[in-house]
Each structure stands twice: as C-alpha cells, then as structure tokens.
Nucleic acid binder design. Sequence first.
DNA 1: ACTTTTGTTAACAAAATTGTTAAACACAAA
DNA 2: TTTGTGTTTAACAATTTTGTTAACAAAAGT
Lengths: 190, 190
Amino acid sequence: MNKEELIKQTAKDLFFNKGYLHATTQEIADAAGVNRSLINYYFRSRDLLFQTVYREAVESLKSQLDKVLYDKIPFKEKLSIFIDVYMKELLKYPYRESFLITEICSKNFALKEKKKSAALAHFLKEIGEEMEKGTLKKGDPIHFVFDLFALMSFPVIMTPLYQKLLDISKEKYKALIAERKQLILEKIFN
Amino acid sequence: MNKEELIKQTAKDLFFNKGYLHATTQEIADAAGVNRSLINYYFRSRDLLFQTVYREAVESLKSQLDKVLYDKIPFKEKLSIFIDVYMKELLKYPYRESFLITEICSKNFALKEKKKSAALAHFLKEIGEEMEKGTLKKGDPIHFVFDLFALMSFPVIMTPLYQKLLDISKEKYKALIAERKQLILEKIFN
DNA sequence: ACTTTTGTTAACAAAATTGTTAAACACAAA
DNA sequence: TTTGTGTTTAACAATTTTGTTAACAAAAGT
C-alpha cells in the first residue's frame, strides 16, 4: 500500500478503532511504520491529517447510510438493512462518533459544514408514516431515532468499561453485541 | 471557595461537562482564574489532577447509584428513582463516561482497580427475578441493562451532533431529553 | 513580635511535540 | 548517463506544554 494511504488507515485505526484520541504524530508514524516527516510531507500538518481522516470517515459512513435510507423498499426491511450496515460500521470504528463529538467540543471545524441532514429528515418522515399506519408505536419520530441509535451504539462504545464491570471475556462480550441486532428489531416492532 | 477545590471543579466542568478533553493546565488555570503554578502546587502534576478528578467523579456517581440499587423498595419504583438519579447526573456531567472510556483506551490507570461491580450484579439478579415474575419481558438481564443505559445516555452524549443534524435549538433539545425519562419507563414496562 | 506554615506568583528550565530544511534515494524518461 | 520528479530520511528549529524554583505575601501558631 502506498504510504499516504497507510498513514490515513493507521490514523483511523488509532482514533476510531483503538479509541486512542491523543495519538501524537510520532505515535501514528510508529504504528504505521513510517518516518514521522512523511506525515508532514503528505498532509502538511497534524491538524490537516486530522481533518482529512475525519472527513473521510464521516463521508464514508454518511454515504453508506444515506443509500440505505433513500432505498425504496418496505420499511421493516429497510430498518433491518440499516441496522446491519450501521452495526457493521460500528464494529469497524467503534469510536468514530465519540471522536466526532470530541472534535466538535474542542475545536469547531466540524460544525461549520454540518447541517440538517436531508436523509435523516426523509427517514423521520418515513417513520412518521409508519406510525400513522400502525406499524410502529405512535410517538415523536425523533425519539424513535434516538432509541435506535442508542441501542446500537452505546453498548459498543462502552465495551472496555462494561467488560470490566460485568467481568466477562472479550469473546462473550462480542457474542452479546452480535445478539443485539435481532433484539433491537424485536424491541422496535414489539 | 478555596482554590484547590476551585481547580478541581473547573477541571471537572471542562472535562465532563464541556467535553473539552484536551484541556491544558494553562486552560484549566485560566478557566478557574488562578495561576497555573497553583495546579502544580496542589496536585504536583497534570496527570495527578486528572487522576484526582477522575476518581472523585467516578466515586461520586458510583456511590449514588449503588445506594439506589441496594435500596429495598419495589422494583418499578427503584427503576424510576434510578433513572431520575442517573439522568440528573448525566445532565450535570454528560461526558463523564466518555472521558472514562478515553482514559481506559489511552493509559491504563483506570483498569487496575476496576472490577466486577457488586451493585451491578445485585441489580442483574433483581432484574432476573422480575423477569421470572413476568413484570419484565424475559431475556438476558445484561441486555436489559445495556438497553437501559443506552436509552438514557446516548442522546445526551450526542447532543452537539444531533442538534446540528436535526437542526433544532438548544432549548428544544433539552425538552426532548427531559421527555425521555417517562418514555424510557414506558418502553421498559411496555 | 517572630517564627513557621501555607498560599501565590513570575521567571526560568525541561520536556514533549510539531514543523522545516536539505540532502540522500529511487527510478523512470529523455 | 543524465536529468527530473516524487519519495524518504535525519538533523535541526520552533512551538507548546509541563514542571521547578525562588521570592514574596498572608495567615496561623508561639
């Protein structure tokens, strides 16, 4: 793999997968097995590397989810696929959203461009329609979305803490997470 | 207020409330309106300040929750109080758990002492009993706990992101969160 | 009153992190 | 072979952040 790509992948792995948010350029370089100067050569500065991988990670997730959300298939099926896709991405990069929040809280570079998501609005409308039809329990669609993302994300994000508190092995925890897709679907269409 | 306490409170505010995880000693000192050297005077090093406020924040939360979990009151009532207490703490320090995870991921100082929580085990047993009785839908109590914490925490943690994506005001978002206590209770005892 | 302890500050030193430069390297095209 | 271009590296410089010291002020104890 060319080293520019290697550096980006490594940075993503450290930030989004390992959850190592404080990673220095030296640590990223070491993890990638390249000379630290290469980071400056390809990305000019640490901050630009941050911005690059951040943008890529968000875009990649967004495009995948948008595709599913705009798909013209029955709601129940759509939701099933959506959970599949999102949880697959979640397991790949558990800390992507956390990183995003951290960035929003510290600097403000994430806020500028972010705006009301059209795909999300579309999804909300669809949820509202399903509630009308009686497929879903009536309520504010926003809470439905809150619930959905919460049930998927939170146990994954909290892995290192919960594993300790519950005193269970990595494998057992993984199995628990794997079970959740079905459970969430059931809970939603109870 | 004495300055030692002031520094700790300010650090907690920056870390756990503002979500500003990268705060330097200078920034903490500025926010507290004290000379930076005072941080070293009282806490020796930045790392020890970290450890101190981290420990205090975890202890404080844990002791409050344990008290509720061990209380000998009907389950439904206990759960209602638990949600109350936890969400109150959540709104005070939305990023406390995120901070915890970040620390566990980077350094390892959090892992050493953490062990299977007795209160949590007790809670799990109690949940299992309620499932037997039919008060709760049968299933793995761990998933019940996953769901409970997820539904409470996640929308709060994601505030800055969701506010943008949904394009709603701070006040509206606050109102949505406030609604959730009741919604969660209903969802659980559906 | 004076001595000791505690709190506070600025100035300095040390360490960690980032950014730059120039030279070496690789290797394809002229 | 040479020239050109993109890549890689070590050495250095700059910056940022942290930690220390010594001097001074305030409070407490004797």
